[in-house]
Amino acid sequence: MINARARRPSAAPIASSSTAKSAIPPPSSAGESEKILGRLIERAGVRERLVLTSKATNTVDPTDPNASGNGRKHIMRAVEASLGRLGTDYIDLYLLHTWDRITPVEEVVHTLDDLVRSGKIWRAWPPTWAAAWPRWRSTGSSPSPPSAR
């Protein structure tokens, strides 16, 4: 949705495709909101005046083990697919839904860093567990972030 709450001239509206890639409703609708949003942004000619967000983690194909989670392959595919559906060269803010309990945090951080360095995303926002994970590991605490307990 295009968030029109920003009223100050210096504040950029936010365009979010937060419902874009869920396998529920049926996979045939996955990504449809990004396509619609991309067309609206193109018609309005406002891409440079928006903060465009997208996200990953949830499954886009329950039959494909590489189509969910925070692994490099899924995140890279998800970003490329979002860029295509949105009709843009970059995403301003890329979010991860949640910790997938499988992917090492180092892999997630390196993947997001590679995407930022390549210019495909400008900022990444991993779940809060990413910052705390090394501390949990070093102290021998529970390997499950608080949100996953």
Rank of each mutant, 00 (worst) to 15 (best):
I14R: 04
A6L: 14
I102E: 10
M1L: 12
A148L: 11
R137I: 06
W136D: 11
E48C: 07
A15L: 10
A6M: 12
E80K: 07
H97A: 02
R101K: 15
P9E: 05
M1Y: 14
A44I: 01
E42V: 03
G31P: 02
A56V: 00
R49T: 03
W133H: 12
A148T: 10
D114I: 10
S54A: 15
A130D: 13
P126D: 05
R47T: 07
P145E: 05
K73R: 12
A132D: 10
T57R: 03
L83P: 00
R137E: 14
H110M: 12
P25N: 08
L112W: 02
P145Y: 10
R8D: 11
S141R: 13
E42A: 15
T59G: 03
V60W: 00
I36H: 06
R8C: 11
S10G: 05
S33R: 05
S68P: 04
D89W: 03
T88H: 06
N58R: 11
W129R: 05
V108R: 00
R117Y: 06
T128R: 12
T57Y: 02
I121Q: 03
L86C: 04
S33Y: 02
S118G: 02
V79N: 00
E48K: 14
M76I: 13
A81C: 03
V116Q: 08
I102K: 04
S141M: 10
P13E: 07
K55Y: 05
W129D: 08
E106G: 09
D89S: 06
S142Q: 08
E42C: 07
R137V: 14
T53E: 04
R7E: 09
R77W: 15
T103F: 00
M76D: 04
I75T: 08
T128E: 15
E32D: 12
T88W: 01
S144V: 10
N66R: 11
A15R: 00
T53C: 04
R117K: 11
A20S: 15
P146T: 08
S144G: 02
S118T: 14
E80D: 15
